[in-house]
Design a protein around this nucleic acid. Structure first.
Length: 1142
RNA sequence: AGGGCUAUAGCUCAGUUGGUUAGAGCGCUACACUGAUAAUGUAGAGGUCUCCAGUUCAAAUCUGGAUAGCCCUACCA
C-alpha cells in the first residue's frame, strides 16, 4: 500500500524525515558508501558561534548543501568537515562589553588569563542554536569532528604556515613575513590597528562633515624661492587645504604636482584684508576667486561687509616642479628644532596630486598619511615629533595612542582628543564644546594663517566595532609580503570558476591587481600569537614553526638559564596541554644563538589568517593526516556571501598561492544579501529581521530552501518574503503532493506495484507516455547541465516548469481516465509505470534542493518493493533517496519530434478552448469538427500522431486539414525581418508594407515558384518564402483563433445528437458531483433516480449505457417520486435527482 | 571620490547573436472545468522596458551620458 494523506504538511514531513535520517545515519552512509578515490572536496567557511544564526545563513548554507548533495548523488565522496571561527576582535569586544571593561583594563583589572578564559567560554555560546538550525534546515555537514580555530593543533598548523612564509624569500631575498613600520588605520577607541579587511566592512566609510581649512604657509626668501618674489617685502603664502586640521601641527612638507601649473596671486587676506600673495594651482583659481573681481582696484576691501568683493591679480604662473625646494615657515611651531627647521618645511613633488579639490597643494604630515609618508621619505624630509632616543629618525608622533595631542602642544591643545567623536557624549554634546579641528582652524585664523575655513562633507573610514573615526597612525606591524605574489595570485585566479563570473574577474581580480601587503598584526589578547621571538635590540630573531621546535628551544633556554623550567614538558608530563595562547606563551623566553634572551613579539595575528589556514589546519597538517590533506586540497567547491570576497576568499587564495603555489578552491559561488520584503537590509534596530527557526517551523525547510534559490539567482540580493515561500509551497510541493496522492489512490485500488525487473518497453507505451518520458529525460539533461555550471536557479526553475506545465497539467490531466477506468490492462500498466517513473526521477532531481520532501515521497513510493530491490540489487534498494545514484541522461529516451508534436497538440487545444470560451460553448458540449490549415508537409503527419489526444481534450468529433486547394483559406504574409534586414537595408520598411499587402494569389504563387521579384524604391529584390512569415488570417464562415502561424477553426453548428450527448455529459457531471458530496468511495456502485423529464429520457435512451458506466450506476430510473433537491443539470434543464449507494 | 552590478506589469522574475504583438508566476476581475479540489483552464485589466542622446532599415537588447539603488575599492589633501 502507498500512504495517502489528507493535507500537505511540510513541517511534519521535516520532522519525520529528520528522525529517519538520524535513526539510520543516512548522512554518514551517504558519505561512507562512496569511494575515497573519487572525492569532491568542499570547505566549510567557519561561522562564529558567538552570534545567533540568521535567515541569511540559511541562504548561504543552502547553496553549500545543494552542490554537496548533488555531487554525492553523482557518486562522489563529499566529506564536509564543519568548523568554528573562534578568535578575533568581535569576540573580544563582546567580552569587554559584558565584563564592563575596556582594553586598557586587561592585565590590570582583569588578568589576561581570566580574560582569555572569558573569551573562550563566549565563543561557543550559541553553538546549540547553530547545531539546531543546521539540522532543521537539512544542511548536511559533519558537526561531530569540527575544526576549532582556538585549539592547539589548529594554532600549530597556523604557526607552521607562518614559518613557511617567514622562510620563503622573494627573488630579492626578502622574507614573506617581515616587520615593518607603516601608516595604518588605527582605532584609538578599540586600541588597535585595523586590517584593510576590517576597514572594508560594510558601513565603515561614512559620509561625515568635517571642518576643512585652507592654511597659508609663509614662504621664506631663499635662493630657491627667488622666482616667487617680485619685491623684497612681499608676504607670499602657499595655500594648502586639509580636511584634518589636527594634522597641521605635524606638517613637514607641502606636496605639489610636478606638471601642474601654479599661479601667484596678489590679493588680500579674506579674514582681515591684509595684503598677501598666495600660490595655488591655476585650475583652482576660480574656486576661490570670483573672475568678476579680477579688475577691481587692488585696495583692501571692507572686512565689515558680509560678502566682500576681494580684488586680485594673477601675477605669475609657475610649474610645480619649479616650486620644489622652496622653504616655508613652520605653520604651528609647537615642536621644533634647528635640525628640523633645516631639513623640513619644504615644497616637494608627488604624482598623486590632483587639482580636483583644494588648492592643488597637499599638506603633508607623514605620520598621519600613507601617501604623505611615502613622498616625505623619498624627499628625505624628517618626521616631526617628540624625540626618541632609541631611534632618532623616528620621533614619537604628536598624537598618542588614545587619540590625544601630547602635552608638548601646550595648554591650548595638549591632552585634547583630535576627533570630537573620541570625547564622551556628555562632553561633546555640550553647547560650548568645540572640536579640536575647529579650535585649530580658529587659532590659524587669529594668527592670519587661514585663508578659508568651511565645512566639508566627505567619506571617512570608521572603526567597524566602535563606530568612531579611525586615525592613520604609525604602527609597527608584521606583514605578509602578499604584493610579491600578486602576479601569481592573478594568474591562478584565472583558473578559478567564479559564480557569478564578474565577482572573480572584476571584484576579486581588480583587488588582486592592486594588492598591498597584508598587515597581520593585532595588538590584542584572544587570537593566534605570532610565533616570533626577538632579542631586545632586534638583531636576532627566530620564527617557531611547531610546538616540538618550541619545546626544544625552551630546553636550550633552560640550559642557558633564561628559563627555569620547560612548561611544555611539564604540561605533557602531567597529561595536559600547554595552552598556546597568551599570556602563557608570553612567559616563554628563548635564547638567541649569541646567548641573549629573546622575547615573543607581542602581536597576535589577523583572524582572517586563521580562517584562510583551514585547508591545512583543519587536518593539523603537516603534523598529522597528511594523506587526508592531500586528498582534500584544493577544494572543488566553496560558497560564502559576496562580502567574503576580500575576506575568506582572499585569505584562502593568498595562503594557498604563497605557501603551495596552488589555488585553494576551483569553484566558488558567492551569494548576495538577504534583504527584507521592501529591499532594506535586515537589522535588529529596524526590527525586520526574519527568524530562521520560525520560518522553517511555519513553512518547512524545503519550501524555504527552494524559494530562496528559485526566486532569484543566489548572487542577486534576495528580497525575502513569506508569501514567496507560500507560493513555492502551493505551486511546486502542493502540485507534486497532489500528483502523488492521485497516484497512490488508484495504485492502491488496483493493487499496483512497481517491478524494476519487468519494465514495459517505452515503444509499447502510448504517445502521451513516451512524450512525458521524453520531457522527463530532457529535464534530466538540463538539470545536470545547469548544476554542473553552478546555476541552481535555472535548475530549480526547470524542475518547476516540468512539474507544473508538463507533468501535472498535461500528462496527468490527460491520463486521469486511464487510471480510474476499468480493469488492469496494458494501457493502465503503462500509465502507472510512466507516472511512477516521472515522480521518482523528479524527486531525485529535486532532492539536493528539497531533501526532506523528496525523501519522504521516495520512501512512500518505494517502501513496498524495498525487500525485492535489495534481493535483486536494483537501484531502489536504498532506504533513502540520498543514497542512490543520480539518473543518467539518456538521449535514447528523448524524442524531439514527439515533443514538437505534443507542443502542437497543446497549442491547438489552447486555441480551441479560447474559441469555446468566446462562443460560450462549454467543453462538455461535443462539437462536430475542428479545422486545421496546413502549415507544411510535415504538419499533417505530426498532428495525426496526437489527433486523438486533441479531440478528446477539446471534445470534438473529427479533425480535418485544409489546404490552399480548398479555397477556404485567407492567407496573410508578414516580412521576416531577420532574413530580410540584411538584404534590404534601408528599403526594409517599405518592403514590409509590400509583403503585408500581398494577396492570396501572390502568396500562393511564391509558395509554388519559390521566388518573388519586387521593386522597392527603384531597387529590385528577389524574395524567397523564407523571407516571409505566412499565416492563415481567416477561414471565412468559421470561428477562428490563431497563435503565430498556427490557426484553429471550430465548427460550432449544433445538431440534436450533439446536444443530447452534451446533456448526457452534464448529467454525468452532476451525478459525479453528488457522489462526491456524499463522500462515496470511488468504487461504490449507485442507483440513480431522476424526475420524469421527456428530453432527459430521450437523452438517457440514447446514452444510458455511457452514463451508467461513467457513474458506476447499476440502475437509472425515471419516476415522479424523487426525494431530493432540485439540481440544474444543463442549460435550462433543472430537475430532481437522487443518487444512492446500491 | 572612483570602479562594478542592477533598473522590464501592483509584486517576484524571464527575455538567446539587435528583428516588428516584450513574456511567466503571484495578486485582481469575469467565465469555465473538475472522479487530483488549499488544484486547474480561458479571457480581461495592468508596460514610456528608469531618463536623455547616439549607432542602425530596425534598440528592452549595442554605445555614451544622466538618475536611483546596491556592492566593492579608496585616508588624494
Amino acid at each position: 500500500m502507498y500512504r495517502e494523506f489528507k493535507h500537505l504538511n511540510l513541517p511534519a514531513i521535516d520532522a519525520e524525515i529528520l528522525q529517519f535520517w538520524q535513526d539510520n545515519q543516512i548522512f554518514e552512509q551517504s558519505v561512507a558508501q562512496r569511494s575515497a578515490d573519487q572525492s569532491f572536496v568542499f570547505y566549510e567557511g567557519p561561522p562564529s558561534a558567538n552570534g545567533k544564526p540568521g535567515i541569511h545563513h540559511v541562504m548561504a548554507r543552502t547553496v553549500k548543501d545543494i552542490f554537496c548533495r548533488y555531487h554525492t548523488l553523482k557518486g562522489y565522496r563529499v566529506e564536509r568537515k564543519g568548523g568554528w571561527d573562534t578568535h578575533g576582535l568581535p569576540i573580544e569586544l563582546q567580552v569587554e562589553k559584558e565584563l564592563g571593561i575596556t582594553k586598557e583594563d586587561i592585565g590590570k583589572k582583569i588578568s589576561v588569563d581570566d580574560y582569555n578564559h572569558a573569551c573562550r567560554s563566549t565563543v561557543m555560546r550559541y553553538k546549540d542554536l547553530w547545531d539546531d538550525i543546521t539540522r532543521r534546515m537539512g544542511y548536511w555537514v559533519d558537526l561531530d569532528n569540527p575544526y576549532i580555530t582556538f585549539e592547539n593543533n589548529y594554532i600549530e598548523s597556523v604557526w607552521w604556515l607562518l614559518k613557511r612564509l617567514y622562510d620563503k624569500k622573494t627573488d630579492a631575498g626578502q622574507s614573506f613575513l617581515y616587520k615593518g613600520f607603516t601608516i595604518q588605520p588605527f582605532s584609538p577607541a578599540a586600541g588597535t590597528g585595523l586590517s584593510t579587511h576590517e576597514l572594508n566592512m560594510p558601513g565603515c566609510y561614512k559620509e561625515v562633515t568635517d571642518i576643512s581649512v585652507i592654511a597659508m604657509f609663509k614662504v621664506r626668501q631663499t635662493a630657491a624661492s627667488k622666482a616667487l618674489f617680485d619685491t623684497a617685502d612681499e608676504d607670499v603664502r602657499i595655500l594648502a587645504w586639509t580636511t584634518t586640521p589636527w594634522t597641521l601641527p605635524s606638517n613637514v612638507a607641502l606636496t605639489v604636482g610636478p606638471e601642474i601649473d601654479y599661479v601667484k596671486v596678489q590679493t588680500f587676506s579674506p579674514y582681515n584684508a591684509l595684503p598677501v600673495c598666495v600660490v595655488l594651482a591655476k585650475n583652482r583659481l576660480s574656486a576661490y576667486f570670483n573672475p568678476e573681481h579680477a579688475d577691481l582696484p587692488l585696495v583692501p576691501f571692507d572686512t565689515a561687509e558680509k560678502k566682500p568683493a576681494i580684488p586680485y591679480r594673477v601675477v605669475k604662473t609657475i610649474k610645480g616642479k619649479d616650486l620644489a625646494g622652496i622653504q616655508y615657515e613652520q605653520l604651528m611651531p609647537f615642536v621644533t628644532s634647528p635640525e628640523l627647521d633645516a631639513a623640513a618645511f619644504r615644497v616637494i613633488t608627488g604624482d598623486f596630486v590632483t587639482t580636483e579639490d583644494g588648492t592643488g597643494v597637499v599638506h603633508t604630515a607623514p605620520y598621519f598619511g600613507a601617501d604623505d609618508m611615502r613622498v616625505a621619505r623619498e624627499a628625505g624630509i624628517p618626521m616631526i615629533g617628540i624625540p626618541n632616543e632609541k631611534n632618532p629618525a623616528l620621533p614619537f608622533p604628536l598624537v598618542d595612542r588614545q587619540g590625544k595631542f601630547v602635552e608638548e602642544l601646550g595648554e591650548e591643545f595638549g591632552g585634547r582628543y583630535v576627533k570630537a567623536e573620541y570625547y564622551p557624549k556628555e562632553v561633546s554634546s555640550q553647547k560650548e564644546f568645540k572640536s579640536t579641528d575647529l579650535l585649530i582652524s580658529l587659532r590659524l585664523k587669529e594668527d592670519n594663517k587661514a585663508f578659508k575655513i568651511e565645512k566639508y562633507a566627505h567619506n571617512y573610514p570608521h572603526c567597524w566595532r566602535t563606530d568612531k573615526p579611525v586615525l592613520y597612525y604609525p604602527l609597527d606591524s608584521w606583514f605578509v609580503r602578499a604584493s610579491a605574489a600578486k602576479d601569481r595570485m592573478s594568474e591562478l585566479n584565472k583558473t578559478i570558476n567564479w559564480q557569478p563570473e564578474s565577482t572573480g574577474t572584476g571584484r576579486f581580480g581588480q583587488w588582486l591587481d592592486n594588492l598591498q601587503d597584508w598587515n597581520l598584526s593585532r595588538s590584542r589578547y584572544w587570537g593566534v600569537p605570532l610565533p616570533i621571538w626577538r632579542t631586545e635590540d632586534g638583531e636576532e630573531e627566530i620564527c617557531v614553526g611547531s610546538v616540538a621546535d618550541l619545546s626544544t628551544l625552551v630546553d636550550q633556554a633552560v640550559a642557558a638559564g633564561v628559563m627555569t623550567e620547560n612548561p611544555y614538558r611539564l604540561a605533557t608530563a602531567a597529561n595536559g596541554e600547554f595552552d598556546l595562547h597568551r599570556p602563557y606563551i608570553d612567559d616563554i623566553l628563548l635564547v638567541s644563538p649569541s646567548g641573549k634572551p629573546m622575547r615573543r613579539e607581542l602581536d597576535l595575528i589577523d583572524v582572517w589568517f586563521d580562517s584562510g589556514a583551514m585547508p591545512y589546519a583543519q587536518w593539523h597538517y603537516p603534523f598529522e593526516n597528511q594523506e587526508a590533506f592531500q586528498r582534500n586540497f584544493p577544494a572543488d567547491f566553496i560558497a560564502e556571501g559576496v562580502d567574503q570576497t576580500r575576506g575568506w576568499f582572499y585569505t584562502l587564495h593568498a595562503i594557498a598561492v604563497m605557501c603551495f603555489d596552488s589555488v585553494a578552491f576551483k569553484n566558488v559561488v558567492s551569494n548576495g544579501l538577504v534583504l527584507d520584503k521592501e529591499g532594506n537590509k535586515m537589522s535588529k534596530s529596524k526590527g525586520n529581521v526574519v527568524d530562521p527557526f520560525e520560518t522553517i517551523a511555519a513553512y518547512g525547510a524545503d519550501a524555504t530552501r527552494w524559494y530562496m534559490l528559485a526566486n532569484a539567482s543566489p548572487w542577486d540580493n534576495l528580497k525575502f518574503s513569506a508569501e514567496g515561500i507560500l507560493e513555492t509551497r502551493n505551486k511546486l510541493f502542493g502540485t507534486l503532493y497532489n500528483t502523488y496522492n492521485f497516484f497512490a489512490l488508484y495504485a492502491n485500488l488496483d493493487g499496483w506495484k512497481a517491478d524494476e525487473q519487468n519494465v514495459m518497453p517505452y515503444a509499447e507505451r502510448s504517445e502521451l507516455d513516451r512524450w512525458i518520458i521524453s520531457r522527463l529525460y530532457s529535464l534530466v539533461a538540463e538539470y545536470r547541465a545547469e548544476m554542473d555550471q553552478y546555476e541552481p536557479t535555472r535548475a530549480a526553475r526547470a524542475i518547476e516548469s516540468f512539474v507544473d506545465e508538463h507533468l501535472s497539467n498535461w500528462y496527468v490531466r490527460l491520463s486521469r481516465r486511464r487510471f480510474w477506468k476499468g480493469e488492469m490492462n496494458d494501457d493502465k500498466e503503462a500509465a502507472y509505470q510512466t507516472l511512477w517513473e516521472c515522480l521518482l526521477v523528479t524527486n531525485q532531481l529535486m532532492c539536493a534542493l528539497a531533501p526532506f520532501f523528496s525523501d519522504w515521497m521516495y520512501r512512500n513510493m518505494t517502501a513496498s518493493i524495498r525487500a525485492n530491490a535489495i534481493a535483486n540489487h536494483t537501484p531502489l534498494r536504498h532506504e533513502s533517496i540520498h543514497l542512490g545514484d543520480l539518473v543518467l541522461p539518456d538521449p535514447s529516451k528523448i524524442d524531439r519530434s514527439l515533443e514538437k508534436r505534443m507542443d502542437y497538440a497543446q497549442r491547438i487545444c489552447s486555441l480551441a478552448f479560447s474559441i469555446r470560451k468566446r462562443e460560450k460553448l462549454r467543453v462538455r458540449q461535443p462539437l462536430q469538427k475542428v479545422l486545421l490549415p496546413v502549415l507544411d508537409e510535415a504538419f499533417i503527419h505530426e498532428v495525426d500522431g496526437v489527433k486523438d489526444l486533441i479531440l478528446g481534450e477539446i471534445n470534438v468529433k473529427e479533425l480535418e486539414y485544409v489546404t490552399d486547394a480548398s479555397g477556404l483559406l485567407k492567407k496573410g504574409a508578414k516580412a521576416n525581418f531577420k532574413t530580410l534586414g540584411g538584404k534590404l537595408g534601408k528599403d526594409m520598411k517599405d518592403a514590409a508594407a509590400v509583403v503585408a499587402g500581398l494577396t492570396n494569389e501572390q502568396i500562393s504563387a511564391i509558395e509554388q515558384s519559390g521566388t518573388l521579384r519586387v521593386t522597392i524604391n527603384g531597387n529590385e529584390y528577389t524574395l524567397t518564402p523564407e523571407d516571409m512569415i505566412l499565416s492563415t488570417e481567416d477561414l471565412p464562415g468559421w470561428k477562428v483563433a490563431s497563435d503565430g502561424r498556427l490557426t484553429v477553426a471550430l465548427d460550432v453548428m449544433m445538431s440534436d445528437d450533439l446536444l443530447a450527448e452534451g446533456v448526457a455529459r452534464d448529467l454525468v457531471s452532476v451525478i459525479q458531483k453528488i457522489r462526491k458530496d456524499k463522500d462515496f468511495q470511488v468504487t461504490d456502485r449507485v442507483v440513480v433516480t431522476v424526475e420524469v423529464h421527456p428530453f432527459m429520457q430521450q437523452v438517457v435512451a440514447q446514452h444510458g449505457d455511457y452514463i451508467k458506466g461513467e457513474t458506476l450506476a447499476d440502475t437509472l430510473v425515471f419516476t415522479d417520486q424523487v426525494h431530493a433537491d432540485l439540481v440544474e443539470v444543463s442549460d435550462g434543464i433543472s430537475l430532481h435527482l437522487d443518487v444512492r449507494q446500491s
